Structure formats: structure tokens, C-alpha cells
Amino acid sequence: MSHRARSALSAALILLACLLTPLGALSAWALYGIGDTARYEATMAPLAADADVRDAIAAGVTDEIMREVHVRPRMQGPVNSFVRDAVRSFTQTEAYVTAWEAANTATHDAVMRALRDDSEGAVTVDLATVTERVKLQLTDDHMPLANRIPVEHTEVTVLGAEELVELRKGFHVLEVAAFWLPAASVVLTLAGILVAVCRRRAVLATGLGTALGAALLGAAIAVGRRLTLSDLPPGVSDTAAGAVYDALTSTLRLACWLLLALGVTVAVTALLTGAYARHRHRRRAATTAPAQAPAGEATTQIRA
């Protein structure tokens, strides 16, 4: 294979590897970061103490209560303030934290179970498990009449049947991509470096391409955040949704920074080693040139 063909093949392999790297990071995050129950719970747990999330929940619960409670128009303001203050106070208790964790766990389990199974129909969550955990927490806190709270089976739809079909297709693709994309990226990178005529330049290109891919992935996360917040349903808090988005993508953003640092480190190392090699070559040429000059002069004198 000619040098030109090897260089072209190496460039194509490295370019493809640099394109697959951010896609592999995205797929691995979606499957192992969001899809794993333990990691999801660890990600969502701190949001129970987030002020914006608590305010959004307090506002939503207050609106639901006020829809069910009929009061005179002149009493709506005071009653609304009283209910909101009571709900906001509840969001600072251990029972609220228990309810938050139970609701998130139940919702995540129901969605992941539906994605992995081939069952049809909407995804529903039974609130009885959430109510049971809150009841136990209130009983432990010695709240009066807490043991009399009824635990009723109330199913809430969290995902429609049509949405589930589309998400299941994407989830199956992620299951394959989360393993094969990173593996293919590594194999293509090694092949591109081995095929290259100048391997140092191939390593430099790989580092720069990896850093660029990480930067583009970080930009995509920022754009996705803006699009998500701009497409929220009416009445949903932007700040609370932003806090949830930031929490869910924190691992992916960390992966972007790691890939960026890795790419820059590899590129800088290739540049420094190349500069050092050229410096050694110049020094070697400079030391051998004076040694060859006297030998030439002696030959001239002998001939004379």
C-alpha cells in the first residue's frame, strides 16, 4: 500500500473513531446512568432538598388542592396562602423526602420494566407503595392519626402506549450502542494509528478529534437544556426543570470534560514529543557535521 493510501485510510479511521466517541459516551450515559435504578436514585435524591424543586412541588400540590376545595371568592387568597405554606413546610420534613424517593423509584421501575418487556399498553404507577412509605414515616415521627391514613391503590399514567413503543425501540438501540460504539471507537483509533505513515501525527489528530467531539457533545447538552426548558408545559417551573435536567446530565457533562482533557493531553503530548524528537535530530546533525569536516581536510592534504 502506498504512503498516500495509508494516510487516507488512517485519516478515515481516525475521523470515524472521533465521531463514534461522543455518541458512545451518550449511549453509555443513557443506558448505565439513567437506566440503572441505583444510579438514578442517587442522582435524584439530592433534588429533594433543592429549593426550586420544593417550591414547584408546593405550587403544584396547592393548585390541585384548591381545585378540590371550594371556598368563597374572597377567601381564595387567604386559603391559597395557608395551603401553600403548609405544603411548603411539609417539603422540609423527612416524610416528604420519603415520598420523593418512593415516587421516583416507583416511576423509574415501572418505566424500565415496560421498556425491557414486550407488554403493550400505557405505563402506570400504583401510588399505594408511595402512600405506605409516607404513612410509615409519619407514624415514626409520631404524627397524630398517622396510622389511620388509608392506603388506596391509585394508578397514575406516566407514559402513554404510543410513547412507549417509540421509547422501547430507542432503548433497544441504546442497549446495543452503549457497548459497541465505545469498543468500535477504540478499535478504529488503534487501527488508524497503526496504519498511519507518521504515527505521531495520527496520535495528534486523534487527540484533537477527541477534544473536538467532547466540545460538540457539551454544546449539544447545553442546546438540549435550552430546548427542553423552552418546550415545557404551561405551569411547569423553569428553574425546577432546569435543576432536574442538570442533575440528570451531570454524569454526561463530567464525561465530556474527561474526554476533552484526555484529547488535549494526548495532543499536547504528541506535540511535545515531536518537538523533542526534532530537537534531538538537529543536535545530532550539529555534532556530526564538525567531526566530518576535519576528515575531509585531511584527505585533501594527503592528495596534495
Rank of each mutant, 00 (worst) to 15 (best):
A177G: 00
F171A: 00
V176R: 13
R253T: 14
L229P: 02
R199W: 10
C256A: 10
L272T: 14
T273N: 03
H153K: 14
G213Q: 07
V266T: 11
L272P: 03
E155N: 13
V173L: 15
C256Y: 01
I193C: 04
A267E: 07
P182I: 11
L216Q: 03
W257M: 05
T157M: 14
A184D: 12
L216Y: 07
T154P: 02
T210L: 15
A267S: 07
V158C: 01
V156P: 00
T189R: 03
V197Y: 04
E163S: 15
L232S: 05
G209S: 09
V266I: 15
A211Q: 02
C198M: 04
V223M: 05
D231W: 06
G170Q: 06
D238N: 03
S237R: 06
L216N: 04
A255Y: 08
H153Y: 07
L227S: 14
V173K: 10
V223L: 15
L229V: 06
R278T: 03
G209W: 07
G160M: 13
V264Q: 09
A275D: 10
G235S: 01
R283T: 09
W257G: 00
A211F: 02
L252M: 11
R282V: 12
E175S: 04
V173Y: 12
D246E: 15
A220I: 09
E175W: 09
A255P: 01
R225D: 07
D238C: 00
G218F: 05
G213S: 02
E163V: 00
D246Q: 10
A220N: 06
T265N: 01
R253H: 13
G207M: 13
V266Y: 13
L204V: 01
V173P: 00
A247H: 15
R201M: 03
S237Q: 07
A161V: 04
T273K: 02
A220T: 11
I221W: 08
H279R: 11
R199Q: 12
T269W: 11
V165A: 06
T239W: 01
A277P: 01
G224T: 05
L229G: 01
L252Q: 04
S185R: 09
